[in-house]
Amino acid sequence: MMSSFVQQTFRYDRQLKLLGEEGQKKLKSSVVMVAGIGGLGGTAAIYLAAAGVGKLILAHEGTIQLPDMNRQILMDSSCIGEERIGTAMQNLRRINPEVEIEGYNDKITYKEAEPWVNGADIVIDARYDFPERYELNRLCVAAGKPLVEAAMYGFEVSITTIVPKKTPCLVCLYPQISVDWEPLGFPVLGATSGLAGCMAAMEAVKWITGIGKPFMNVMHRINTLDMSSYTVAVKRNLTCTCCQG
């Protein structure tokens, strides 16, 4: 039988060619929080688990519903009506039993999520509504933790990495909640949310291992219908009520 060390090396053989042993060790010792494990966050969690992060902290409330199944690839049709978080944790352990999984059947509130954010090295925001995204942003600013802000709507994906005191925070970018925002029932194609999730996972891997250049101080957007994309520079709001305190 393979030794544990040899087995681990063999599992990550393909990416060791890219990250090197030092990069893989950094992943192994890292803790990533994924807020939301639907189509976007669930995809990010899958690839982070497959990559061999040491620990995943997951948060998502509620039960699996049939309309989730067009995009939430961590879920299982046989578990409709059951808690999302339990199914997600079970499926992630099947993908990589070496990863420690911690899960919470909760929304993001400041009080509940504070220890989760404090315990993470980097946070991925994959929540579907702005109130929870603002709470997560406030927590990351207070804790000084980087936040991968990934989102999609219809066929468009957007992503930026927020680093407190170095980049604009979410409130800098969106000072007010749009009155036109529809928190539930917005249009989603699974492949679009999956692309956003893959990009978010890549941002976390880059941050943890030090390879490449994270999307800091820029917002990157992709229209998946024609694969056009653009990147715009973003700046901190010097009067921001969140990150300038």
Rank of each mutant, 00 (worst) to 15 (best):
Q176C: 08
M33K: 00
D129F: 05
T209N: 09
Q7A: 15
E82H: 12
P214N: 15
E83Y: 11
G190M: 08
I101Q: 09
F5Y: 01
F130T: 07
N223T: 06
I211G: 03
L225Q: 05
D68I: 05
E132S: 15
V148I: 15
D129N: 14
R14D: 10
S158K: 06
V53R: 08
G23N: 08
A50P: 03
W116T: 01
A204G: 06
I37P: 00
N96Q: 04
W181F: 11
P168V: 11
L173V: 12
M199N: 02
A196R: 03
F10L: 14
I80F: 05
L139W: 04
V179R: 13
F10Y: 14
V205Q: 07
I101A: 10
E102T: 10
T241M: 10
P183A: 10
S4D: 12
I208L: 11
R127S: 14
M89N: 00
R11L: 06
Y134S: 00
I108D: 05
V99M: 05
D226Y: 03
N70K: 10
F155E: 04
T224H: 01
V117H: 06
A150Y: 02
G144H: 06
K55Q: 12
I208T: 03
A113W: 12
M33Q: 03
A233I: 04
E156L: 01
